[in-house]
């Protein structure tokens, strides 16, 4: 992976070949239009959706849920992970339940959450929060537990208070794994949200795709696939840039 490979032309060959094959297949009428919409009609669906503001509204609805749920899930997750890392007693009482629930994928909780919270906004935000809670809690827990005992001994010799230890030792030492956990939490939250919206929603990018499917609008479904892929990529990539900036100069 370290090998530098910068050959944009060759990299585009695969994508262009796929696009060309797709275009030719629709041109020659290999598949009916309801089965494979031509690339230009997907583009038209995109332009139309963007022009009418409908696509923007769906994306905003999804991102709003993602933001709220992620903030809640990450905050609670960080607090939980911190409490588990600092107190063996808290860990003894909670870790059993924590790890048992962790075995169940978020998607399997969706129907249960529908029964408890209904199909409104709360349910979707809870799904997102659950999806982001675990990676963050685990990252904070293992990040702090992973700090070398030597450092903790030095902190003890200097009789640092808990607040000082947190600020001077634990935060900087655990930052890289915690950032990775936060990034993982964000991408999982996005995946869970798309799934929740596919199942039940009245607005949002997943719902747009589900409606497209029900109306046999293949162009809209394909456009949705591209949009969720792009948003997922941008979220992950943006976070990676942030991570690199924040941990600059750290050898970890």
């Amino acid at each position: 992976m370290t090998r530098a490979r910068f050959d944009p032309l060759l990299s585009l060959v695969g994508l262009l070949a796929l696009l060309l094959a797709w275009w030719t297949a629709t041109r020659l009428g290999v598949f009916p239009r309801q089965v494979l919409a031509p690339p230009e009609s997907v583009w038209r669906a995109f332009v139309q959706g963007a022009g009418s503001g409908e696509l923007g509204a769906h994306i905003l609805a999804s991102l709003g849920r993602l933001g709220t749920g992620y903030a809640a899930g990450a905050l609670v997750g960080a607090a939980f992970g911190l409490a588990m890392a600092l107190s063996r007693e808290f860990e003894a009482y909670t870790s059993g339940l924590f790890h048992a629930v962790r075995q169940v994928p978020t998607i399997a909780f969706i129907p249960m959450l529908v029964l408890v919270f209904g199909v409104e906004e709360t349910f979707k935000i809870v799904v997102v929060a659950k999806a982001s809670f675990y990676p963050v809690a685990l990252a904070v827990f293992t990040g702090i537990r992973g700090i070398s005992a030597k450092y903790l001994d030095v902190a003890a010799v200097y009789t640092l208070s808990l607040a000082q230890r947190l600020r001077l030792l634990m935060l900087p030492a655990a930052l890289p794994p915690v950032l990775t956990g936060l990034r993982l939490g964000l991408s999982r939250a996005w995946v869970a949200l798309v799934a929740a919206e596919l199942l039940v929603a009245d607005e949002g990018i997943g719902q747009m795709m589900e409606m497209g499917r029900q109306m046999f609008r293949l162009d809209i479904v394909l456009m949705g696939v591209v949009v969720i892929g792009t948003i997922g990529f941008l979220l992950d990539h943006g976070f990676k840039l942030l991570e690199r900036r924040l941990t600059k100069g750290m050898s970890a």
């Binding site: 798309v194 997943g206 499917r213 394909l222």
Partner: peptide, 26 residues
């Protein structure tokens, strides 16, 4: 690697379950 790689990584960006409406149609 150079021809298939970018294609593979583009497809990878879409969550697996996001393909369901499309596959349902097909």
């Amino acid at each position: 690697d150079r021809v298939v790689g970018p294609l593979f990584h583009s497809i990878r960006q879409v969550p697996t379950l996001g393909w369901i409406p499309l596959l349902g149609l097909w």
